[in-house]
């Protein structure tokens, strides 16, 4: 399967990266990682890029590319997915409120409603 992984710079993004690397190692998927530009994130785009590159290299996935995307995160991700032959788009899916309510943000909603492919939300 050809997988596109979209990441911001949150803790959820790090968890989603780890889980996707595990899956890729297990089944040998093709994988492209793109880092969107979300200035309010905990990690900057450059930091997240470095972290993703290092995590892939450590897992022996040196040949899987990582790229940075400019512009509105949801729209940039969907555009990118449309231009490639991807079977699945993976994003982090939901944070928990203090109450324990699952919250899906506006980027998640945009991607779910607009992506041309199957979308996988990683909890």
């Amino acid at each position: 399967m050809n997988v596109l992984l979209g990441l911001g710079g949150s803790d959820e993004s790090v968890k989603t990266l780890q889980r996707t690397i595990e899956r890729t190692t297990d089944v040998g998927d093709d994988l492209t990682v793109v880092i969107v530009d979300k200035p309010e994130s905990k990690r900057s785009q450059d930091e997240m890029y470095q972290q993703a590159r290092e995590a892939l290299d450590e897992a022996g996935l040196e040949d899987r590319p990582v790229e940075k995307l400019e512009g509105d995160p949801g729209s940039a991700l969907v555009d990118y997915a449309e231009q490639g032959e991807y079977d699945q788009l993976v994003i982090g899916g939901g944070t928990l409120s203090p109450m324990g309510k699952i919250q899906l943000g506006p980027i998640t909603e945009f991607v779910l409603l607009n992506a041309p492919t199957t979308v996988k939300l990683v909890r």
Partner: peptide, 16 residues
């Protein structure tokens, strides 16, 4: 249920 709460099953309800 709304947005995952309340959870179902006694142990998960208690834990929540």
């Amino acid at each position: 249920r709304a947005q995952g709460i309340p959870p179902t099953g006694e142990s998960r309800i208690r834990n929540w």
